[in-house]
Amino acid sequence: MTDISRILLFMVGCIFTHNVVFDRMLGVHDAGQPRRFETSVIYGVAVCIVMTLSAVCCWAVQTLLLAPMHMEYLQIIAFSLVVVAVTALTQLCVSKVKPEWMETLDNCLMPIAANCAVLGIAIVNAEAGYTFGYALLSGLCGGLGFLLAIVLLAGVYEKLEFAKVPEPFKGMPIAVISAGLIALAFIGFKGIA
């Protein structure tokens, strides 16, 4: 297999087969928040940026600091610190470059730091022992997978807005079941990458 096809398969795997929400079950709480379609797209892109940057930074912290000094036990604290710092930095940049985005997102990106998909992908990368390139791709495609998931969920939620959902199932229960049915459809990607 050539390098390019291996990389393509890795990307397809990260976006679809091992989708952060529907297969790895990370960031479900965040993805499940009801949002309008436009908000979902902007939020998803913001998560994608934070996830890519944290994947890269956490890789650097892991390979250049923690591993050589045998301090892997500090991984959780170190990675959390990196994620918080990256999120704060992203918030600063976005509010300078795209102030209208910040308005849509209630002027705060900090909830992204609490999205367990961001920290989760960083830890997955460290455990898999990826090289720099794969860690970067894993972060980027994990983020794209999250974007795909919340956009699909937003579409389904908009359809559900007018549905006659029975009272006890309104809101969260039907949202979780919808996510489950989408995850059922995603099982079809099994075996691809």
Partner: peptide, 25 residues
């Protein structure tokens, strides 16, 4: 087998949430 997979987890959790709502309501 489905119940042990992520998709089944979502569906079981959603069903339990709905039942819990119905009971506590």
């Amino acid at each position: 087998t489905l119940v042990a997979l992520p998709a089944g987890g979502f569906i079981v959790l959603g069903l339990l949430m709905g039942c819990w709502n119905a009971i506590t309501a």
